[in-house]
Design a protein around this nucleic acid. Structure first.
Lengths: 349, 349
DNA sequence: GTTAGCACTCAACAACCGCGAGTGCTAACA
DNA sequence: TGTTAGCACTCGCGGTTGTTGAGTGCTAAC
């Protein structure tokens, strides 16, 4: 057979047939037979010939057969080939950036809002489940700290860090402090703490009581708050979008499977691990078992990264069935990633 | 039969039997037969007698029969009776308040955080889906407005309103403003605007340019922001918890039903309408069709209210299958409602 | 190398059947 | 008069069986 003997390989015709099978299966989710290929996709070949090729493709590991009298479905290896070829070609078309830009409002906002908005856009455009992960909070240095009176006995602590990230919290203050007094404290604190990391600032406040001329209680509260902010900031944020989209695919017509899927999404640590291992690749595609999560056995995870500043980067991704519309997803991810980078870089200034 | 003739009514024995049926069905979700009742629940009556009573109960509309050779299931009317009697009895036991209190952190926080945290607690304790709605934002009066420098060309606007609700946003400012300049503006603005509603303040800023000694661009940005806050604040916030809990119930072992259910949850307007119509009742229970939403046909919605201040109240609620564990849900709702009221009242001061 | 033809396989679907849980009715009983 | 045992009846459920049809692999002819 073929070129002489037993050794058979992937020629272009086989590849074209495989491509057709993948395309059809992505569209319909039903095993595709030789007749379908020879008729729907004009190959100029009879079903019998296709059949022979399909048999070869199965032997090569690119096709699976659910049972003997069913059509073939692409194996993970097939998707891998398909995706690699897609990425090698490099020409990932760009989704209309204007559309995307429109989704995000115009205002600069808290990181969390941006993250969650991006997740909405991403799942809206792809119809899959989306993940958006903020960068691992690099050490934030304080730029400004200010107390704003809220009531007679409480004030709002606002912290602005270099990353442009702000956080606030209410603390109690003694009644005799008016706005000016609070401002005076704010100035002093900012003077001493600006440029410090959150941890340093916390130590500074905790250790040297009396150095600042105000009552200790307030300093203590602020120190506590700094600790909290640091903890919160250092842990990466994760937003999900379109979690129920998975139910639109016949692969998940079983409630138990859906439950398993959603459970994984809810326990975010697993996801974080998955998203962190991104490397410097523009795109990462994990197909089926490559995700390492049993519940995602017939899902693929496609991720891309965006940059917050020169050294910190976040990840955006999409989860859907392995028969995912990779080309479209890659295109959308690329566009939104770029968009997000722009948005956050400018925000920082 | 019974007391003379055709006219039959609900005596205590019938009631006890109905109660047993409801209890059993809530527990098992399978139609309950006469034998089960006479054996598992010690009535001192034979299955034949129970059978007669069940037949009567069906005629009275309290029981349904999926098909002739199956047991009976409680009708909506039965649940209604059951719940009404539960509410009349009044003795809704209190869930351990300490446990609940623990779930909420200690710090005072933004309304949204509290809302979403409450939803988590609620679904965690009940294993149903939970809804927490913030009160329709009553007109908020400004208490304080402050600009905090973020970078050379941008500042954070912090607004504190009487409700204790704070909001922030970044605006651009000209480069020559330092912290003191911003503080000066803040003082002036606070002086002029404190006590105003957000809308009034917006008008004031928009109309009388030049009255404040600073560049118009900043005032405009602040005015814009005020408008946004007002709009955001006036629309009620809604948080959900345990949305995927519904899949734990055999009533929703069909993916299509689950999808329908989750879709309703995602289009929040329907829910808001449902939650708003609460009245002054401590508790509201809507059973099956009473919800007015077809997708909730075999769900019940139990709501309770909490108070933010004397005149504004929010709603918390739970959605689960009609065979819901009402007693427990009412108890948890009561406790969390109280807890929430405390938390927010104190926060306000 | 390609293709028509044919025998074969096997999931999906429908029809069927027996089991058993549960009922309603009747007649006997306290 | 209310309660109960007994019995015939109903009908969903689970398992089996038969049929159909899509799809294959193989062979032989082109």
């Amino acid at each position: 057979m073929e070129g002489g003997d037993g050794r058979m390989s992937m020629d272009t015709r086989k590849f074209r047939i495989l491509q057709a099978i993948i395309d059809d299966y992505i569209l319909t989710a039903i095993p595709v037979g030789s007749r379908t290929i020879s008729k729907k996709y004009e190959m100029g070949l009879s079903s019998a010939t296709i059949r022979n090729e399909m048999s070869d493709l199965e032997e090569l590991g690119y096709l699976d057969q659910p049972h003997v009298s069913a059509g073939r479905i692409p194996s993970a290896k097939a998707y891998r080939l398909y995706v690699d070829q897609l990425l090698a070609k490099g020409a990932i078309s760009n989704t209309d950036a204007a559309v995307v830009k429109n989704y995000f409002g115009k205002r600069a906002r808290q990181m969390e809002e941006v993250i969650s908005c991006a997740a909405q856009v991403l799942s809206g455009l792809t119809h899959y489940t989306s993940l958006v992960m903020s960068p691992k909070g690099a050490e934030q240095r304080i730029r400004n700290l200010q107390l704003v009176p809220v009531s007679n006995t409480s004030a709002l602590v606002v912290i602005v860090t270099e990353g442009g990230i702000m956080r606030d919290s209410v603390i109690r203050v003694s009644a005799e402090m008016d706005a000016d007094a609070l401002y005076a404290i704010s100035r002093t604190l900012t003077e001493h703490l600006s440029g410090c990391t959150l941890a340093e600032a916390q130590n500074l406040l905790g250790g040297t009581t009396g150095k600042f001329r105000t009552n200790e209680h307030v300093l203590e509260s602020i120190a506590d708050f700094l600790g909290e902010v640091e903890q919160q900031g250092s842990q990466t944020k994760l937003a999900l979008g379109g979690t129920s989209n998975i139910m639109n695919f016949p692969e998940y017509s079983d409630v138990e499977k859906v439950k398993g899927f959603l459970n994984v999404l809810e326990t975010k640590d697993q996801l974080l691990k998955l998203l962190e291992a991104n490397g410097e690749m523009a795109f990462t595609v994990r197909i089926g078992a490559e995700t390492g999560i049993p519940e995602f056995a017939d899902c693929s995870l496609v991720t891309a990264s965006y940059c917050l500043s020169d050294n910190t980067q976040g990840t955006i991704g999409v989860i859907g069935p392995t028969r995912m519309h990779y080309e479209h997803v890659l295109s959308v991810l690329g566009t939104i990633g770029k968009q997000l980078t722009d948005l956050l870089m400018q925000d920082k200034e």
